[in-house]
Amino acid sequence: MLSESLLEKYRDLTSRYPTKRSALIPILLTTQEEMGYLTPESVRFISDYLKIPEIQVYEVITFYSMLRTTPVGKYHIQVCTNISCLLLGGEEIFEHISKRLGIKEGETTPDNLFSLVEVECLGACCNAPAMQINYKYHEDLSVQKVDKILDQLKQQG
């Protein structure tokens, strides 16, 4: 069910720790990066692989904000609205994207291209307001800059 390359990554990750369980979060991240989200099948597999009860894997998944059990858009937009971003228009950036894409917090566009969430401090305070699309940081944002980024992504499809 899981690709050989993913299994190879699991082996590499578990080899770094004296207990296999330590590799759980890196394994969940790696799996999510490959599959888009953590499917029930992948969770079952990881639970067997690391010999951890499934419920404890879910306990970890639901604790960490980056881990998810449902799909998101191809471009997962995460807008920071914490203090430094708030002071420089982070909320307006969020509202603008929401309006432009016609989706609310936590939603995905019907074409599955974009999803939008509000996130806590991204550690980009000196370049506020900021957002992350998938893993890429976009900083010193303005509405115009955001439009340009979204235009480009829309074009790329």
Binding site: R21, S22, I25
Partner: peptide, 19 residues
């Protein structure tokens, strides 16, 4: 994987142990 509390020393250790 996204949790402020893991900046706290022992929260970090728990996280590092896969919890």
């Amino acid at each position: 994987a996204g949790a402020y509390i893991c900046g706290e020393e022992t929260g970090l250790l728990e996280s590092l142990e896969g919890k």
